[in-house]
Design a protein around this nucleic acid. Sequence first.
DNA 1: GTCTATAGGGCGATAGAC
DNA 2: GTCTATCGCCCTATAGAC
Lengths: 204, 204
Amino acid sequence: MPDETLDSDTPRARGSYAKGLARRQQILDRAIEVFASRGSARTSLRSIAEEIGVSHGALTHYFRSREHLLVEVYREAERQLDRHAPHSVDVSAVGIMTASAERNRTIPGLVQLYSTLVAAALEEGHPDAHAFASERFARIRGELADHVRRDQADGRVRADVDALTVATLVIAASDGLQTQWLLEPDVGHTAALELLERLLTERP
Amino acid sequence: MPDETLDSDTPRARGSYAKGLARRQQILDRAIEVFASRGSARTSLRSIAEEIGVSHGALTHYFRSREHLLVEVYREAERQLDRHAPHSVDVSAVGIMTASAERNRTIPGLVQLYSTLVAAALEEGHPDAHAFASERFARIRGELADHVRRDQADGRVRADVDALTVATLVIAASDGLQTQWLLEPDVGHTAALELLERLLTERP
DNA sequence: GTCTATAGGGCGATAGAC
DNA sequence: GTCTATCGCCCTATAGAC
């Protein structure tokens, strides 16, 4: 395997540690492209390794299991998306999820990967996926609830609803609509999110 | 897309005889118990066969693939639940989903199985799961939209929202809340569904 | 630390024996 | 119609080369 020298802005690390980090990152970046282009179907470690151009063994050196690789790929993809298009502070809570949904819709493969990971997280014996999903839901629920509270202070969301409950509902709706969208792109998922926003804004 | 039977297009005529039919049904019933008790984890065809008390080959004789078995198990379980506790005509649309969610919560394994099937349906190369999920979403969306229209006529749901969009949103929220519930049972999924019902009932 | 080579056990699917 | 035997693939683990 040829030794690719990457310009790495990785902080100087001991020994050849920097090389490993760069390689790991390179694998992640290529893997993201693979998953984005064809979902998590046909993604045995061997297929991924072949397509990326590394050996099967090299893959398992950097990622302790197939599930671990999938989780890290999704995490990194999300990180890159956030870096590229950070959330505006100025938008409503549902607006955040709408924007996020639209963004995801440009890369169906990653939505498929997300569904696969969440489904795995629900089963026993998938510690990596479970940790990923639990953490993610808890974090997003918290962030979104904060946002809802701000919206309520600004009069953008009706004040007589519990912020955490709203956050839970919005996340659930967003996730559910995304799977329905993958199955049937013509269903009015945007309309449904808009409806939810309207219901949350109006005061009775 | 009209009714597509999963068994009709196979070259071999399985289950054409009374004995075969009975055996197939017996396998399904036992399999439902297995999945209900431990989800779709550790459910290789071999494990299922062993636990049910048939051979691995017998299983694949009656169900052309693992995925086909999973779909048929879920279909049959849902059918049995409906038979046992049919939906009251007298309840609201969200009420139907709430009742359904509560019912499902008594058998976590089947909720896990559902998530697994939906996730598989989103990928290429899973025709049985895809047919199952598409059909199911289309059917439930239609039924629920009809129900919403009735609710609107009765003044139980505000009249200024599109029934089909409401149905789409309610299904999405219900599905999403169910997965969140499996990950974190203490999260207020009931509260979230109640909130949605309240939002849909009140008039601004 | 990075990576290759290899072995073990389990899987879904299938051909062909009863 | 039923089921055993087998095939090729997969993930994981590990020993040891660079």
